[in-house]
């Protein structure tokens, strides 16, 4: 939507593997643009001040808070959201483990949690429960109490090592 008097910038980026051009309000953060500009509503907005992790997306290969980066800063970057990570199959083992273990309830935190867990498993294929808990401590889940999430990440790690 063109907004009156709103300063904008044109950006070009790779979004979930696809080359995209867009005009974004300068003050719009990345997750708001992904959700409302690019129509990718799988990334969620939970706090807008960098605490909850619901907005996690991957930018140039690392997981970042989508509310703490401007959309204009994604110019030239490769951005991957839960939608892209799903269709590439990159996080399939984690997704299966989360599903089977009921490691989500309302599911609002889940996309961010999955991306963060995937980053952990890339770095550490056999994390302990404590290591999983620490790695996910920037992702709030208000429903599960985390135990099932830790189980699921362990199960996914085991299946990936097998």
């Amino acid at each position: 939507m063109e907004l009156p008097d709103e300063p904008t910038a044109d950006i070009a980026l790779t979004l979930n593997g696809e080359a995209i051009r867009a005009r974004v309000p300068l003050r719009q953060n990345l997750v708001d643009w992904l959700r409302h500009g690019a129509g990718l509503t799988g990334s969620h907005v939970g706090c807008e001040h960098g605490v909850c992790g619901a907005c996690h997306v991957q930018v140039d290969g690392v997981v970042v808070r989508g509310c703490l980066m401007l959309a204009v800063q994604a110019d030239g970057a490769a951005v991957e959201t839960i939608e892209g990570a799903t269709s590439s199959g990159r996080i399939r083992a984690l997704q299966d483990a989360f599903f089977n273990r009921a490691a989500l309830q309302c599911g609002f935190c889940t996309p961010g949690m999955l991306l963060q867990a995937a980053e952990l498993l890339e770095r550490n294929p056999d994390p302990s429960r404590a290591e999983i808990r620490e790695a996910l401590s920037g992702n709030y889940c208000r429903c599960t109490g985390y135990h099932a999430i830790v189980d699921a990440v362990q199960a996914a790690a085991a299946s990936l090592r097998a």
């Binding site: 959700r35 959201t81 996309p111």
Partner: peptide, 14 residues
């Protein structure tokens, strides 16, 4: 929850 895991949830603001 399959939908939610794949980022296909439809919450109000979606």
């Amino acid at each position: 929850t399959r939908r939610l895991i794949e980022g296909r949830g439809r919450y109000t603001d979606d």
